[in-house]
Design a protein around this nucleic acid. Sequence first.
DNA 1: TGATTATATCTTGACGTCAAGATAAATGGA
DNA 2: TCCATTTATCTTGACGTCAAGATATAATCA
Lengths: 171, 171
Amino acid sequence: MENGTDKIDRILAQWRRERPDLDVAQMGVIGRVGRLRAILMAEMDRVFKQHDLNGASFDVLATLRRSGPPYALSPSQLIEWTMVTSGTMTNRLDKLEEAGLITRQRNPEDGRGFVVALTPHGFELIDAAVTDHVANQHRLLDGLNADELDQLDGLLRKWLGAVSARTGSDK
Amino acid sequence: MENGTDKIDRILAQWRRERPDLDVAQMGVIGRVGRLRAILMAEMDRVFKQHDLNGASFDVLATLRRSGPPYALSPSQLIEWTMVTSGTMTNRLDKLEEAGLITRQRNPEDGRGFVVALTPHGFELIDAAVTDHVANQHRLLDGLNADELDQLDGLLRKWLGAVSARTGSDK
DNA sequence: TGATTATATCTTGACGTCAAGATAAATGGA
DNA sequence: TCCATTTATCTTGACGTCAAGATATAATCA
């Protein structure tokens, strides 16, 4: 199973011909991260769709589910975990509420805030979806063996640590 | 500089507590790809913006530039390289044409098609932008040494090959 | 040649996201 | 106590993308 030349290699070859002054090795790595992310997203979306979800709604429901009983968080907490803006979260919660997967009640201890909670239906749905999702993720990574998976995780963790330290993202 | 626990680790820890039946190692790797992609995109956008571009317009101009003289491709070819839909490409070309960075002329040999070409201004702009872009990519990867970069590229290449073989993407 | 099929591109409507700003409630002094 | 500031959330308008379909031209083949 030789690793032949792919689309990214062809892009790099064009740059090397047209701009031999540039070292495009880094472009290859970054480009592959982008392509992988696009393919992985598309594949994961297929499983989400089987449960009438998309990446956005899965993200919110999963955040509530893994937070543990009583499966309830404030919009602010959801914003922090999912790293979207408040406008995006409002929009997501509107849809999920309308679909009957969450409830949104005023926080009795803080009149500015709300408590977002999974409904029983929302709990059942996300629990089933996440089971399928994890199985799908295993499938998407079965081209690498255990050692390679470990190596890859280590390198990505180091890289992510370096860039988020500098850019101040993550915490 | 020990690699401490990050947001992804905290997410995995929650899942392990709430759903100990699931093996979430793969979720960690896939999650890190997603986070990295988001941070890298944001950082690259900053450089694009310095040239009055965004990722979309940079992508089109760069594809024309690296294709070599006469720096002209059909919308179909641009669609193939950039992997967007025809509607997206029409929209991108409209903006670039209005900005004077490309021209769009009917293909004299095929009345259905067009020839999209860099203007002199478009050429100058993308040539300067790509120089800064590559320097920026080097900076974004300077947390890894040469060996690690090589290892990472190999693993990503193998993974990408495996998933795109199965999903039929890429070519 | 004429009719069918394929190709190239554009159009339309919907979606999810963001930035900026609006609103309302809580907090922290003076 | 009252005002200024901060915090939590929602609203609005713009953007880039996609899927589906419209249009026009080219290619095929009977």
